[in-house]
């Protein structure tokens, strides 16, 4: 991240000098591109640097088993952050007025609780899976209705839904741990080929599918158009509201899916799902720096989730207090937000 710090000031100054006397198009564009490149390159360099550092400092770090563990440990947060990324893409990345889904963590908690409760009531895996996914989808539908039909700002609409959902979870579980076990759950929490946890494969497969849809199909392109240039999208005849509603349904489904993963990981549904919210928001925000044009992308979010996962893992391997992780995360976010803000100001 520090690598790109020197790049931004020259381009900013270049902009100030050049715009008023002689409007030269390539100047600011070039500067912006350089800065973007530097930021992206810088963040990737930081990521690589962290990996190299941990590999040298903790010999065990760079083993298939450990990397697989980190992938598996990042699965739940990763799926949630990818759901949030879809909403951010469709709603625009303005943190206050743009797309955001604060109900995701609570959604995961309730979906997990529904799964565990159904499993405890003697229902089969299929019913429990459908129950969890259905719960997630229903929460997504409520969010979609609140945002597109009632016209409430996503930040407030999903905040309200978050509270309702967290309350429902309390009612359902009485704030207790509901243990759940079954063949499907033990398969999910077991290790797959190469001793890598199945959850790791699930995360990679899930990312691949969602990334394929969002990054490489016309549908995905329209999703970006709706979020970045809603007026242009509307003029081009795109159903903007349907896209936004669809993004909330998708993120709701991600919440339900993450709920299932969480039940397998924790052998049941446990309390405190809400604590997941901020790490997920942070992961989705941080994902922006891992994309080519500094926009939210699915692969960027995956990298960001893994980055956070590797930090926590490396800190444990080095016997450093994990309390430092949130500080490092916060510092990174601050850098990202200030860098992107600088870039945006420059683009105007």
């Amino acid at each position: 991240m520090l690598v790109d710090a020197p790049y931004i000031p020259p381009s900013v100054f270049g902009l100030e000098e050049k715009t008023s006397p002689e409007p030269e198009k390539s100047g600011p564009a070039l500067g912006r591109r350089l800065a973007t490149l530097a930021l992206r390159g810088g963040s990737l360099a930081v990521f690589a640097g962290v990996l190299v550092f941990f590999s040298i400092a903790a010999p065990f770090f760079l083993t298939v088993g450990n990397i697989g563990n980190v992938l598996g440990q990042s699965a739940i947060a990763g799926v949630l952050a990818i759901g949030l990324t879809i909403v951010v893409i469709a709603g625009g990345s303005n943190v206050v007025t743009g797309g955001i889904d604060l109900s995701l963590a609570a959604n995961m908690g309730l979906s997990a609780a529904v799964y565990a409760t159904l499993a405890q009531a003697g229902q089969g895996d299929a019913v429990a899976i459908l129950g969890a996914l259905g719960t997630g989808l229903a929460i997504g539908a409520v969010n979609a209705a609140a945002v597109t039909l009632a016209g409430i700002v996503p930040l407030l609409a999903t905040l309200a839904v978050m509270n309702v959902v967290a309350g429902l979870e309390l009612v359902l579980t009485q704030n207790t741990v509901v243990p759940a076990s079954g063949e499907f759950l033990s398969t999910l929490s077991a290790s797959g080929p190469f001793g890598v946890p199945v959850l790791a494969y699930v995360l990679l497969g899930f990312t691949l599918v969602v990334a394929a849809i969002v990054q490489y199909t016309p549908l995905g392109l329209r999703l970006y158009a709706v979020g970045e240039y809603p007026d242009a999208a509307r003029a081009a005849g795109l159903p903007v509201r349907s896209f936004v509603a669809g993004s909330f349904l998708a993120s709701g489904l991600c919440g339900g899916f993450a709920g299932i993963l969480s039940v397998s990981y924790l052998s049941g549904s446990t309390t405190g799902a809400g604590e997941m919210l901020l790490p997920v928001v942070v992961t989705a925000l941080l994902g922006v720096v891992f994309s080519r044009r500094l926009v939210p992308t699915i692969t960027g979010t995956l990298l960001s989730a893994l980055f956070v996962g590797f930090l926590i893992n490396g800190f444990q391997l080095l016997n450093i207090s994990s309390t430092l992780v949130s500080g490092v995360q916060g510092l990174l976010i601050l850098l990202v937000v200030s860098a992107t803000t600088l870039l945006c100001r420059e683009a105007v």
């Binding site: 563990n69 440990q73 739940i76 741990v177 946890p197 990981y265 309390t271 444990q316 994990s322």
Partner: peptide, 10 residues
């Protein structure tokens, strides 16, 4: 609990 399981795994 999520952190607890991760830390045990590692």
């Amino acid at each position: 609990d999520g952190k607890l399981v991760s830390q045990l795994q590692t």
